[in-house]
Amino acid sequence: MHIPDGFLTPRVWVSLDVVSGSLLALGLRRVSAAFEEKAIPLMGVLAAFIFAGQMINIPVAGGTSGHFLGGGLAGALLGPWAGLVVMSVVLIVQCFLFQDGGAAALGANILNMGVVGSMGGSLFYRTAMGGLHGERRVFWSGFLSGWLSMVLAAGCCAVQLCLSQVVSWSAGLSLIVGIHALVGLLEGIVTGTVLQALSASRPDLVRLDQSRFTLKDGMVWMILLAILFAAARFASEAPDPVQKLLGLK
């Protein structure tokens, strides 16, 4: 899901760099205000944990393998803002050290896996925990958080590629989202199992989240997304993508 450079048009990657950079700056402010000094190295090591967790490859099928992404888990454990910061740090290191994801496309990747993956994951986890009951509710909340965050992140990635007109809307959405809806099941299983195991052995670690998602944060997020989609509208002179997708033009 790490978009390399060259696959997004300049208008798309520049606007996404601005949006993700602003959100990351906001996240850093929130984290430094909400977390104690002691939590800062802990978060750094937790970023290293997500990074190391992504290195373990598990066979999928036909000689291919997959790995854990961790956006939903970071969001569920650390909360929306700290999860965004941790995922951004992981993506920056992957981009610089391993060239996994482009430098110019870093904003797009942070938006997909940090903002949508981690912040979305936090929101889904909280909502599911509030709505579900029973002994396995931590697992199922984690499962939903992992699966939904991956599918939405993949959807976002597909939209960015479609806006850049490098893939068609039908092929892009069906291929990228379809594949990740299946792979996301595995992400959901892993996220749910990790949270279940942690809540059984170290329940104090499952309550690390100290950065609440307030109404003000929601407003800022909505405004930035509105700016993003307004900017994306000018990404090409072709007919409105939604109209094109629906076959209206």
């Binding site: 190295p41 802990l42 750094g44 090591v45 937790l46 290293a48 944990f49 190391a52 967790g53 373990i56 598990i58 066979p59 854990f68 595995l186 299983i189 892993v190 996220t191 749910g192 199992t193 990790v194 279940q196 195991a197 942690l198 052995s201 170290r202 670690l205």
Partner: peptide, 22 residues
């Protein structure tokens, strides 16, 4: 599929080790 479920346990162990190391 069961391997993926066990990956969760591995990652939970790794997480606890990481946290205590931190």
């Amino acid at each position: 599929l069961r391997q993926w479920a066990h990956l969760g346990n591995i990652l939970a162990a790794l997480f606890i080790r990481s946290y205590e190391r931190a």
